[in-house]
């Protein structure tokens, strides 16, 4: 563990608890680092506490680093996403959760100054390779965004857009079928079946977000990435989305970024705690919330900062 990083961690911790304590000297820090390393028992090259691998991985990420210009946004991240499991990514704002999931379907390509390195694989296919087709990748790895962002088109067109792009339906009847099943699985069909031709932007916030989920699953992806999907929704809409995530995990691997620890505890099987661009701890959700292995995780889940 790098001394500077620990110094930064400590600064942060101290800043939250007691402002009057002076920063420890470098020698004190060095001994703290040594203690930390022995305590957690992690190797020098892998500071992550807990087991970041999954038994049946769909996606594997090893040594992922992201740079935004000169800013090192993600540092040596290792994480697997298993089949039919929900992985929650938690951590304070700006810790790199969103950056991480945006690596998984190469949405960071749209940011000119972003540079991603590391070994990211989807069923063994290199995600980050230059020759990887991003269109195919994004068809396999769907994404739901923080703010509901339906197209300014009809409900039907919103869901039909993806299948139409990829030629998944050969005729109108098949397309209708895809639209209906997608909306049904997103739990939206009963509410919109009479207003398929109305604009998707006219729905309520929660309905819009479920429409976006329906749009994502209409393409039959293998993984669904969700970037704080409930942050703009009220508790009732949030509960519906959470139920939906639960159902969807029967068929899909899901990675969800959330700021709500209750939400992470409710929907996920495994949880990864991010801090300043590093994955501090990955374990079963139960373990992370009841018996965290790292001091930072404990502070975060007990609400002492973040």
């Amino acid at each position: 563990m790098a001394v500077e990083a620990v110094r930064q961690d400590i600064t942060e911790e101290l800043g939250r608890t007691d402002n009057k304590v002076d920063l420890p000297s470098m020698s004190e820090l060095a001994s703290y680092v040594a203690d930390q390393d022995t305590e957690s028992g992690s190797e020098a090259d892998s500071p992550t506490v807990g087991d970041y691998t999954a038994a049946d991985p769909v996606m594997t990420v090893r040594d992922c680093n992201v740079f935004y210009g000169d800013t090192h946004a993600l540092i040596d991240v290792n994480l697997d996403i298993g089949r039919n499991e929900v992985v929650a990514l938690i951590g304070p704002s700006g810790c790199g959760k969103s950056t991480f999931i945006r690596c998984l379907n190469r949405m960071n390509d749209t940011i000119d100054i972003a540079r991603v390195t590391g070994d990211l694989r989807l069923y063994g296919d290199d995600i980050n390779a230059r020759k990887t087709d991003v269109v195919l990748l994004r068809a396999r790895v769907g994404m739901v965004f923080q703010k509901p962002n339906p197209f300014p088109k009809s409900v039907y067109e919103n869901v039909a857009y993806g299948p139409r792009l990829h030629g998944l339906a050969s005729n109108r009847a098949e397309l209708d079928e895809i639209v209906q099943t997608s909306l049904e699985r997103a739990g939206l069909w009963d509410e919109v079946k009479d207003r398929l031709e109305e604009p998707g932007t006219g729905l309520s916030g929660g309905q819009q977000q479920r429409l976006c989920i329906a749009r994502t699953i209409a393409v039959s992806p293998e993984v669904i990435l969700m970037d704080e999907p409930c942050s703009a929704l009220d508790p009732i809409a949030t509960a519906r989305i959470e139920d939906l995530i639960d159902e969807l995990s029967q068929n899909y691997a899901i990675a969800i970024v959330t700021h709500s620890m209750q939400q992470a505890a409710r929907v996920s099987q495994r949880t990864a705690y991010f801090h300043l661009g590093r994955v501090i701890e990955v374990d079963t959700t139960d373990k992370v919330f009841t018996n965290p292995g790292h001091k930072l995780t404990e502070d975060y889940v007990t609400g002492r900062f973040g």
Partner: peptide
């Protein structure tokens, strides 16, 4: 957000 939505479902 509209661009991201389109790219997210696999539009080139």
């Amino acid at each position: 957000s509209v661009r991201e939505a389109a790219l997210g479902v696999g539009a080139s």
